[in-house]
Design a binder for these strands. Structure first.
Lengths: 268, 268
DNA sequence: CGACGAGTTGAATGACGTCAAACACAGTGG
DNA sequence: CCACTGTGTTTGACGTCATTCAACTCGTCG
C-alpha cells in the first residue's frame, strides 16, 4: 500500500503548512488515535446509535447486539471483503476510514465511496444471500464489526424496535444510492463536482454565501468518487475559480458564491 | 401523453407484423387485461409475496397488510408522485406498468427505471421522512397501493416476520442500485447495453449461446434507462451486428454470441 | 395524400479521458 | 545546505466517445 504510506509520516509536519496546507491529512486531534490493544473491542452506544439512527437504543438492545457482534481488526490497506465474496454478515466499520470500490488492472484501488467509522460497509447483501457487489478496503487501521445474518434475524424476532432501525438504515442507503444514480445519469462533471462542494460547504460566520470546503482526501480519490479523472477535477477547479466562484489553496477551497455552485449543480 | 397513445391502438395490428414486429407491444395474452371496475381493489397473496419476497406470508399477515393498504388508481400517463413530494407512505404498483424518472425541459419524461407490477415505486423515502427523489408516472393504467408509514411501523411491532420481509425488499433494492451505480461509474455505453442484453437474454432450445431478446419498450425508453441517446443505441445495435454478435429485426434481437456480449459487458 | 412519430444515418461539435511533461513538496542522504 | 527520489498535482496536446443537429425512411392514422 505504498500509495497511502505518507499518511503515517505527517503527524509532525501538519502544523507547519497551516494555511498553505498541501496535504489532506489535517486530521482533528484524537481522530488519529491509534487502534492499539483493544482494537477488536465492541462498539459503544454512540457508535450503535450513529449506525442505526434515532431513536436511541435501550440498554438491553445494546447488550443483545454486542452479544452477536463479531469484532475484527483490519490493517491499513487490507481487504475487508473482496468483490464477489459471499456475504454472510452485515459489515460495518466501528472506527477508522474505509472505502468501497474496485481494483483496477494496474493494481490501484478505485474508490467509489469512502466510509468513515462508524458507518456501514455492507448492510444489504447478507439479507439476500448475494455476493458483495464491490470490494472494501481499509484506508487506515480499521476496527470492523460483523453481524451474522442468522443472529440478527433471530434478534429481530424478539426486538421489534431493532427491526425498525435496520429498516431505517437500509432506507437511508437506498435514498443515497438513488440520488447518486440520478446524478451519474443526468449530470455532467461540473454539476457533480459543484454538488460535491455544496454538500461539504461550511458557511463562514460573516456571510452565508461564502465559506470554505476542506478536502479530507487526496484529490485523485475525490475525483474517483465523482467518476472523473484527477486531471478533469483539476481543470474544473481552475474553471470554477476563473468564474470567480471559488479559490483554491492546497486542500482548502474558499467558496465565494455558493448560489452559483448550486446553480451549476442543478443545471446538469 | 401523446407519446404512448399508440399503445391502445394496436391490439389488432399486432398479429399482422408477426416476424417483422415493428412495435414493442407484443404483450402476452392476458397482460393487457383491462383495469376496469375493481381496479382499486387490494393485492392478492401472489402480489404481496412477489413484492416482499420469500418466505410466503401467512393468512393473518396478509389480512393485516390489506387492512392498512390504500389502493389508488392512476390513469395512463398520470403522475403517481412528483419529484420532491414528501413521502408519507411506501408506494408500489399492484398491476400495470409504471416508470421512475424525471421530466425534461421539453415536456417529455426521461425514464430511469421501469417498474412492472407488482413492484415497488418507493419503499424507502417514507421511512426517513425524505422527499421522493424522482418522479413516478403511469405508463399504462395503473393500480397503485400505498402503505402509510405509521401503519406499517405499528404492524411491525406485532408481526416480526413482516419486518424481515421489508428488510429483504430494501436489501434487494440496495443491491440493484449498487450494481447500477457501479455500471454508470465504470462502464461505457457498449458495455452497459451489452449488460442490458445479457440480462434479458433468453437462450434458445438448441443452443445456449444463441437466443433472442425481446424489447418490450420503445427503443428510446431503453436508451434513457441506459443513460444514452436513441441515436447512440441505434449505432450500438448496428455495431454489434456488424461484429456478428447479433442481428436486429424490429423489436426482436437475435443473439448469436452471448459470450461475446458478456465479454463486452465486463470489459468496461 | 399529408401529417406524425419512431427509428436510422451522417456530419459536426463538445466533453472528457489519455498521455506526457513539468512542477511542488516531503523525506533522505550526502 | 543541497542534490535526489517518490508521490501528488497541474498543465497542455491530442484522441475518442457520445451527444447534438439535421436529414431521411418507414409505417400508421386521419
Amino acid at each position: 500500500m505504498g500509495t497511502m504510506q505518507f499518511a503515517e509520516s505527517r503527524q509532525d509536519g501538519a502544523a507547519i503548512l497551516a494555511e498553505r496546507a498541501l496535504h489532506p491529512l489535517d486530521a482533528p486531534p484524537g481522530a488519529r488515535r491509534a487502534l492499539r490493544g483493544a482494537e477488536a473491542s465492541l462498539p459503544d452506544a454512540r457508535a450503535w446509535n450513529e449506525l442505526l439512527g434515532a431513536p436511541a437504543l435501550g440498554a438491553q438492545e445494546l447488550s443483545a447486539l454486542n452479544a452477536i457482534a463479531r469484532p475484527r481488526f483490519v490493517p491499513q490497506g487490507g481487504v475487508v471483503f473482496a468483490l464477489h465474496e459471499a456475504a454472510r454478515a452485515l459489515v460495518f466499520v466501528r472506527e477508522g476510514d474505509a472505502a468501497l470500490g474496485c481494483a483496477t488492472q494496474d493494481g490501484t484501488f478505485r474508490i467509489e465511496r469512502p466510509v468513515h467509522g462508524p458507518g456501514w460497509l455492507d448492510q444489504s447483501s447478507a439479507w439476500i444471500d448475494a455476493a458483495h457487489p464491490v470490494e472494501a478496503r481499509a484506508m487506515s487501521p480499521l476496527a470492523v464489526v460483523e453481524l451474522p445474518r442468522e443472529d440478527v434475524q433471530a434478534l429481530m424476532l424478539t426486538q421489534p424496535l431493532l427491526a425498525r432501525r435496520l429498516v431505517t438504515g437500509l432506507a437511508r442507503e437506498v435514498h443515497a444510492l438513488a440520488l447518486c444514480t440520478h446524478g451519474l445519469m443526468h449530470k455532467d462533471a461540473p454539476a457533480r463536482f459543484a454538488q460535491w462542494l455544496v454538500a461539504r460547504f461550511q458557511p463562514s460566520a460573516e456571510s452565508s454565501c461564502c465559506g470554505i470546503v476542506k478536502m479530507g482526501e487526496r484529490k485523485r480519490d475525490i475525483a474517483s468518487q465523482l467518476a472523473i479523472t484527477p486531471e478533469t477535477l483539476s481543470r474544473l477547479m481552475r474553471s470554477f475559480s476563473r468564474q470567480g466562484l471559488l479559490s483554491v489553496t492546497g486542500y482548502t477551497v474558499h467558496v465565494a458564491d455558493v448560489q452559483g455552485l448550486r446553480r451549476i449543480a442543478e443545471g446538469g
